[in-house]
Design a protein around this nucleic acid. Structure first.
Lengths: 269, 269
DNA sequence: TTTAAATATTGATATAGATCAATGAATTTG
DNA sequence: CAAATTCATTGATCTATATCAATATTTAAA
């Protein structure tokens, strides 16, 4: 699928053996990981990468519906999605769920837990999902030695703030139509950036999750999908989406789409 | 006003003399600044503080309506509000403004600019406002030496992400009433944390700014203020707000108010 | 395979809050 | 200090989208 290539490079045996299963085979070095430019884009040389690699731990894949962490869990690591996808969400007292975001391959989760030393959100796998675990204290001490890493970490966090700001704009003043369009464009951009198709993908999250995330009723999401389809913008088949007219969809989203850019992917500089 | 005390401690003469006016007198050491626990809460000792201080630059106050920076400005520094307040906002192609946040004394602006090396938002003074300028490269190199500072910086950014997430909840699924209530509680908490009154304060921003920030029409904000007043929750006199029943207001906001906490103030741990 | 449980679609209706509009302070300006 | 401008309040109406409801489809379970 796409270029999820060359992930099976086996280096040293698993350092930590907390999980029982045959982790050894899954152990992959950062330097060989197809996601490495994403997790650590800039200015980290060969040696540094090796050091970084040594602190990163691959866990065995999560099944659909499994939690990576829950609200209130002690914060120890941030995670990078290697394959699959996650949703993060919080639950209000009334048991009502608020979906805060979706994490696709190459994206990080858990940065919001640093300040309180515990996870303010839960992270649940939307499908079979594997992640890299990056123990935070290790990362911190390493990044005080590797200045490029420190900077990179700050950049990633800053980007997260940007993205959240973008979402606030979307929630604060866009119409339902604009929201869904913006959402699809964002997903598309994020897939493309990871080397997947930008025009054809599967949404691993339910309509209800999308609606919740966008501040819309799921019925509205459903209706909009059919509307978009009727307008010739895309083709929907349940989870599968094919974007037929990305530009027009982008125009629908009410954003500057001149450079077919999305907030999320603009971090490359 | 409140305990905005003991700010006038004069140390060495201004290092950078970019601005013409009598900056010398305003120059105040971090270690004497009433905001120091806020900017740099933990684990920084006397010596380190002095080093930090040496990179921080006080600028002369901004007049109401003046910009601290504009969209697209090269990112060089982050800023801490010393007194007064700011709003950050972006402007869509249609010239439509989106207010992203308000910064009160002790709060930082500009963290979202790190990733792109330029400011994605503009920051404008809502009243006469003075800020500390913290050149980012200096801060970065210093924080690789002072591990407490590095951690603190990450914490602050993480907290910002948390806060934005909170705002997403508010925009995504709260009613107009809940939004305004949550907003007032948040402001109240932030004032209290800085030693100001939590029950009586002036809103430096207009109804329109509040509405824009909360994703509501200004008329709605206005109506809600009168409603809240009629309900005996508070007293409004134009910009001046007096909270009469904080608990009930908090209940209105639809959040767990058990510990009269707000997202923003929960960062102390 | 049948049954059950999610999940998705589509329609009908209700409503929170936007928008339009007019008036009244309060600030700013000349 | 008057005039102009900005800002706030209040009312009347309209609309986008939620909510309620029924059905269909898919997935999971038995």
């Amino acid at each position: 699928m796409g270029n999820q290539r060359s992930e099976r490079v086996f280096s040293m045996p698993t350092r930590k053996l907390e999980s029982v299963v045959s982790l050894r085979d899954i152990r992959v070095a950062c330097k060989a990981c197809s996601l490495k430019e994403i997790c650590l884009p800039v200015g980290i040389d060969r040696d540094d990468l090796e050091r970084l690699d040594s602190i990163i731990d691959r866990k065995h894949p999560l099944a659909r519906g499994e939690h990576l962490f829950r609200v209130g869990d002690r914060f120890q690591s941030i995670y990078a999605v290697r394959s699959g996808s996650l949703k993060t969400y919080s639950t209000s007292e009334g048991g009502h769920e608020q979906v805060m975001g979706f994490q696709l391959p190459g994206e990080l989760v858990g940065l919001d837990a640093i300040s309180e030393n515990q996870h303010p959100l839960a992270a649940k796998a939307l499908e079979t999902t594997s992640v890299c675990e990056i123990p935070f204290t290790d990362l911190e001490s390493l990044s005080s030695q590797i200045s490029g890493l420190q900077h990179q970490l700050l950049r990633v966090m800053s980007q997260e703030i940007r993205d959240d700001e973008q979402n606030m704009v979307i929630l604060g003043q866009k119409s339902a139509e604009q929201r869904l369009a913006a959402f699809l464009i964002s997903i598309s951009n994020r897939f493309r950036r990871r080397g997947f198709s930008a025009t054809q993908f599967n949404l691993s999250m339910s309509r209800s999750d999308i609606g919740n995330y966008l501040g819309l009723a799921l019925e509205t999401v459903s209706r909009l999908f059919t509307r978009f389809q009727n307008d010739g913008l895309l083709r929907v088949d349940r989870k599968h989406i094919e974007l037929l007219d990305r530009d027009r969809l982008c125009a629908y989203s009410g954003a500057h789409c001149s450079e077919q850019q999305s907030p999320r992917e603009s971090s490359r500089h």
